[in-house]
């Protein structure tokens, strides 16, 4: 991981330093986090990606104080993670779970009393779109409404940063669009840092400025979404006699889509074109092909052949 891609520690809303966590002992032990370090810059929407078992939920539970790390530290806005520093965080960890016998308003009022923000109940209910159901018991709520209430609970304490675990889970398409808009709004209008853990790569690509990909408890890739996509881009050429060129270019080249794909730094493309043209290769078409986040994700999280 390049040091250049890592923001300054001082600007980090959340900093995780060499966190290790193992569940169980002996041969049955499962390593959930293996020395994970990452920093979430303040004021941005930061995506956390990883396949099942990568350690995302364990990380979020450590940040929430529900699980203690075996080693390593967590800092929230520069202060060691504690009950006091967690007051600056709003959290929706895993599936939204609530007291089924309370109403949405009662939930928010109860949590608002803990942060002395009772004036926020009405605006938060309105903002997450459950004002009309505010006085209904949560037992009658759909999964989507529970997700909205979960985000409401995260926002009620007027946090500087919120951690959202799969926030669009269970929402209908309109709800997903609203939620994405809300997340963007939180960062741009309110200046709230958002750590978004999601399986929906398309969602992360649309919403997040920066992303971390976890694999087996380690950081597999991290950086600006645009940089990651650029870094994994490929150059595609359509030439006469591609077989001859494939042999000449060796392992960096691969046949595909009626042409040749080349994995090389983007800045070397003009030199390559010039050298191919000078050596008499007739080029019909050439383009830089950007991957989507799914391709980056798969390339970073698939088991590599030895």
């Amino acid at each position: 991981m390049s040091e250049m891609m890592t923001p300054d520690n001082a600007d980090a809303a959340l900093a995780v330093h060499a966190v290790e966590k193992t569940f169980g002992r002996g041969s049955g032990a499962v390593v959930a986090l293996a020395g994970l370090s990452l920093q979430v810059p303040a004021g941005q929407v930061y995506g956390l990606l990883g396949p099942n078992g990568a350690g995302k939920t364990t990380l979020l539970r450590i940040v929430a104080g529900l699980v203690r790390p075996d080693r390593g530290t967590v800092e929230i806005f520069g202060a060691p993670a504690s009950v006091a520093s967690r007051q600056r965080l709003g959290m929706l960890v895993e599936a939204a779970s609530f007291y089924p016998f309370l109403t949405a308003r009662e939930h928010l009022e109860m949590f608002a009393r803990l942060s002395d923000t009772r004036d926020r109940v009405e605006p938060v209910l309105r903002r997450v779109g459950i004002l009309s159901a505010a006085d209904k018991k949560v037992s009658g709520f759909s999964l989507g409404m529970k997700q909205r209430l979960g985000i409401g609970c995260a926002l009620i304490g007027r946090p500087d940063a919120i951690v959202l675990d799969e926030p669009t889970n269970g929402l209908d398409p309109d709800g997903i669009l609203e939620m994405r808009s809300l997340i963007r709004d939180l960062a741009t209008r309110d200046g709230i840092t958002v750590l978004l853990s999601s399986h929906l790569l398309d969602e992360v690509e649309r919403v997040c400025q920066r992303v971390a990909i976890l694999r087996r408890g380690r950081l597999a890739a991290e950086g600006n979404v645009a940089d990651l996509l650029d870094r994994d881009g490929r150059f595609w050429l359509k030439v006469e006699e591609p077989d001859a060129l494939l042999v000449r270019l060796g392992e960096t080249a691969q046949a595909g889509d009626g042409g040749i794909y080349l994995r090389l730094p983007r800045e070397t493309v003009p030199d390559l074109i010039a050298s191919l043209a000078a050596s008499g290769v007739r080029i019909h078409e050439a383009k830089w092909v950007k991957p989507d986040l799914e391709q980056v994700f798969l390339s970073e999280t698939r088991d590599r052949q030895p």
Binding site: A64, G65, L66, V83, R86, Q87, L89, M91, V93, E94, A95, S97, F98, Y99, P100, F111, L114, S115, C153, G157
Partner: peptide, 17 residues
Amino acid sequence: FTEYRYATWRHLVPRRG
């Protein structure tokens, strides 16, 4: 047992010691 039954420690633990 309420907090274990409804998995609601996650709301309380980050807010209070």
